[in-house]
Design a protein around this nucleic acid. Sequence first.
RNA 1: UGGGGGAUCGUCUAAUGGCAGGACGGCAGACUCUGACUCUGUCUAUCAAGGUUCGAAUCCUUGUCCCCCAGCCA
Length: 571
Amino acid sequence: MTYPDSSQPSDFIRAIISEDLRTNKNDGRLVTRFPPEPNGYLHIGHAKSIFLNFGVASEYKGGICNLRFDDTNPSKEDVKYVESIKEDVRWLGFDWNDRLFYASDYFDTLYDYAVELIKKGKAYVDSLNAEEIRAYRGTLTEPGKNSPWRDRSVEENLKLFERMRAGEFDEGAHVLRTKIDMAAPNINMRDPALYRILKVPHHRTGDKWHIYPMYDFTHCLSDSIEGVTHSLCTLEFQDHRPLYDWVLDELGIQNHPQQIEFARLNISYTVMSKRMLHKLVDRGDVSGWNDPRMPTLQGLRRRGYTAKSIRNFCNRIGVAKRDAVVDMALLEHSVREDLNQHAPRVMAVLHPLRLIIENYPENQVEELDAANHPNDETMGTRKILFSRVLYVDQDDFRETPPKKFYRLTPGHEVRLRYAYLITCVGVVKDEQTGQIIELRCTYDPATRGGSSPDGRKVKATIHWVSATHSLPAEVRLYDHLFATSNPNAVESGKDFISNLNPASLKTLRDARVELSLKDAVPGTRYQFERHAYFCVDQVDSSDDALVFNRTVALRDTWAKVQQIQTKSEDK
RNA sequence: UGGGGGAUCGUCUAAUGGCAGGACGGCAGACUCUGACUCUGUCUAUCAAGGUUCGAAUCCUUGUCCCCCAGCCA
């Protein structure tokens, strides 16, 4: 999974690391870490971080990347998330080997460090309540003021902190804070909290603790304990870096990792915040965290995205410090690129239109050869069955064709893929509605397999299935979750929900797929020729009821031509 | 209006004083038993104004715009 050096996008983080390695900083060690909080499912934004941290480590000799769960807030966390996160990281193709850690493993050490800070007069137990602390903190433009409890003696602080640990106080009664500077222009330095009382059992430490350390205290020390050299995080932690450094410096910690911040990933037509994703799940706008429209790794996987395509995507978007919104088209390109190469082709009719070959013998059935991949012979061929009654897609016929319409139309000849050249000789309509319900065609027996011995050309080749030799299937057509490229751009009074795309899922229940799909295994990806890439749904598909998810449509030049045509008609 | 960051094609990203490059996207064409794939050509950018310099995306000055921070979340 190494990406070639020549095309390796250079980024400022790799530049820093290369320089550090060159100057033998950290004795030439390189250790990064991916530090998820087990309070939700991973999304593609996390994939960027995983790809960066594990990627960077793998590019340098001896580089290591730890998987560490930042599990310091048991009120929000759960083991189920731990398991799903591990599964997702593995699925993405990364291996932490024996480097699996939990911040909760360090709770004893962390407690000792906190005691040390108290003894040094750098931390104190504050008995203000949350509201008071907020009031004392000041504002962005005004300095805060010292808590009346700030000057408690070391002994008293020690005693109170010990009693906090023992569970003698209610939640919120006290909090351990650093003693830095209530007038600091950086609000994060105004005596930030180190420990809070939380009478909640922890998914790993059970009910051993009644106090839990805060992120700012835990993260830097965990990094240091694990020998991390480069602690990569997102931009919003820039303001926390002075605190990260302060804790390590005050404690005289030898291994002092360097925190480096980069911009988080945003993608057009979707949202990436856990809060928003949560809301979509709670409201039922999607079927769950693994809904194929979700940008979660579970959702993308179910949609049919390959791990490789996501890695390639991460490689392409690069790493920088400026806020950015990556075009969804790039993600889609990445998966098409991979699927084009590896997905076997099959034929499926999504909106069936009956087609009768009038001059084809009534009960005859022929086996025809079809290539599983037109550009890769090693993928072999399969047999497809041809008969007198077929289905083709409604989009492939027009009684009165617009300009540049090459497909089936009365009197014109087209090729049925891998089968015969046919000509439309008649149209059967519903007498009531006028809707076309059947096409009458003739075929040229000399063109078996789709060849034309006399060298005559047809403009189009269309796909088909035999009516009796095909399977019913449910097909789910997915599109962008949001109708607008920036879901956060809303009129006042509305929120991102108002930008949901009402057409993000269209379910087709009358689709017909070729017989070879009979035992299609959930999770398998195919290209339905001339339509899109599809993945057998891993949740709802069964032997009796096939369900396919559209991963991404094929590029469709004809659709563009049509759009332009309808636009000019409107004028 | 405190503090911390950031501004390069439509989008993402390179170029660390020396030809503004790549990818996606768009457009045009070639090819084609997928209007796919592939191939060819093409389009578009240094936030602004000054300055330093033989030479500035890069250095300096001034300004503009955008993002983040007032959890006992991470």
